[in-house]
Design a protein around this nucleic acid. Structure first.
Lengths: 326, 326
DNA sequence: TTGTATGCGTTATCAT
DNA sequence: ATGATAACGCATACAA
């Protein structure tokens, strides 16, 4: 494997000059430049990037932490991150955590080892204190409202979105509203739960803990959600489903179980994935691609920023107007 | 940032000794070992992994090339790869190519630069000649039948699978069979097309090019496929759908269009994803997790192996027995 | 415009 | 069992 020393010898110049043409630096004569270029061609030279990394102290590698890479929400987010990474000439190292904290710690450790320049945590498992411990080693960017903490972040306002969606359903006459979610813990889930509580307080509705259906991630979990509903004496008349895939699964499952949508059950999905369009599911669009791109940019920029992205309701066919029973 | 030199000074030993305890080498006295360990604790030391990489000429990084990371087929394959990587203490660098050859070349180049130790190509875009050109720089493993070429691979026999599935449908009385696929090019697709042709020849059926429906990748593409079918004068009575998600999309789309499954249209999906189980779709199980794990192992092993994995038909409710019209 | 010398942090070789 | 030193391949401050 030939290195710049060899090239220098071949071209009859110094290693510095070789390095200069390699990095497109100015102040090198055409003549010598060509000699170097010729040597590169002749030797089939390839830079050893690890040496560059060691020398520069940077790797052009950004870590991405996410629980499930095969979940459409995270896939789309990742896609946005990857798009921007490509543009900025960075590469991505993937950390699929399954929400296991030790895996997230592994990513943090790589940051400390300088194998990655920064870390994007799409959904956090570890405590704030651990995150802060690793902050000195590179920028860490998050996908949640971080309040006044000293990290960059891009997120949507889950509280507001949830609250608005609940009010929307209320105005459509729904009084018994449940929601379907992936996990109950996590910052975003807690914002949603708070919105759910506040909504019930404001409209003096009775808060039903079993209307919160968790551990629903994929299409096939729609079946699971419906089974939970069927066990209830007075099931909700509307469901906020924090994933379009699960919403679609619910719609299909309802057909099997003879539940009419939206008459017997109204559904609002999340994300506005293509599946929601195909199945005419009312949904709340979350700008996942834009979010991904923003997260990446924050990862490579040195200044701290916090960006709240907006979302919007897309009305389709899965929400009914319900006569209020007095 | 403290380095081993500092540690050596602190512990009153040489850098070599420090390196020894860092790498759990033998021949170091308990006393000095403890001194080093103490220094490590005191200084919050962290190895600079890039220096290790440069010194060792290896990075413990494996590249993974795939067209779409948000597609369930590749997600699941990736999951298998990631599982094994975790076990062997490797990390993964993701190359999402969208089947753009230049992106695949980028991955190949990283192999040459020694930023990654080997490369797993889940679905290939570039020519064999280009692959071979990069073979000297690290092992490249593929997910297709590579014949006698000097690379490792794990794959399923797409020819046999397709042929068997076609015969299965034929025995159920189907004479007009179509198939739905992601792309027509690619080694695996070509095997399938060959099986499709051979099947038609053997049973003296007329080969209908428009029964091959391509560019269907996601659930929502099921709608697209059905629209193509509706334009035909004599549409197929059965469909081999090379993705369970698309198969599910077709099933849902058929309900909307009033097409009865399996009476008017039989469906066989591929992969045996959870969605197929939920919707009772007859499918062909492909051991994607196992495939991923095998691919990874081949990537880190030095010897060349080629492994064919088996698949099996899972009979559910989307294939009808059709009376043959004489 | 060019080259020399040094540093990056670690591992490996070869003494002792 | 321990340590000095070379090597890994490249970038860069500084000198010329």
């Amino acid at each position: 494997m030939t290195n710049i020393k060899d090239l220098a010898k071949m071209a009859g110049v110094s290693v510095t000059t070789v390095s200069r043409v390699l990095n497109h630096h100015p102040y090198v004569s055409e003549e010598k430049k060509n000699a170097v270029l010729a040597a590169i061609k002749a030797s089939n030279y390839q830079q050893n990037i690890n040496a560059v990394h060691l020398s520069k102290g940077k790797t052009q590698l950004i870590g991405v932490v996410l629980p499930y890479s095969d979940h459409p929400y995270f896939s789309k987010l990742l896609k946005g991150i990857a798009q921007q990474a490509l543009e900025q000439n960075y590469h991505l190292v993937l950390f699929q955590t399954d929400y296991k904290e030790c895996r997230e710690l592994g990513a943090l450790r790589m940051l400390k080892q300088k194998q990655i320049d920064s870390l994007i945590i799409c959904s956090r498992s570890s405590d704030w204190s651990t995150i802060e411990e690793y902050l000195p080693y590179g920028s860490i960017v998050l996908c949640e409202d971080v309040k006044d903490r000293q990290v960059s972040s891009t997120y949507v306002n889950h509280y507001k979105i949830f609250y608005n969606a609940l009010e929307y359903l209320y105005k459509k006459g729904h009084q018994r509203i449940g929601y379907v979610i992936a996990r109950k813990s996590g910052t975003n889930s807690q914002y949603r739960e708070k919105a759910y509580r506040d909504f019930h307080t404001k409209y003096q509705l009775s808060y039903q803990p079993d209307y919160i259906i968790d551990e629903c991630l994929y299409f096939e979990d729609g079946e699971k959600a419906i089974n939970r509903l069927k066990k209830m004496k007075t099931p909700p008349t509307a469901l906020l489903v924090t994933s379009d895939q699960v919403a679609a699964g619910i719609v299909v499952s309802c057909q099997t179980h003879g539940i009419s949508i939206p008459n017997q059950l109204s559904i609002i999905g999340f994300d506005n994935q293509p599946i929601a369009k195909m199945m005419n599911i009312t949904t709340i669009e979350i700008p996942l691609l834009e979010m991904g791109r923003s997260l990446f940019l924050q990862a490579v920029q040195s200044d701290l920023t916090n960006k709240e992205l907006s979302s919007r309701l897309i009305e389709r066919d899965t929400v009914s107007y319900k006569e209020k029973n007095k």
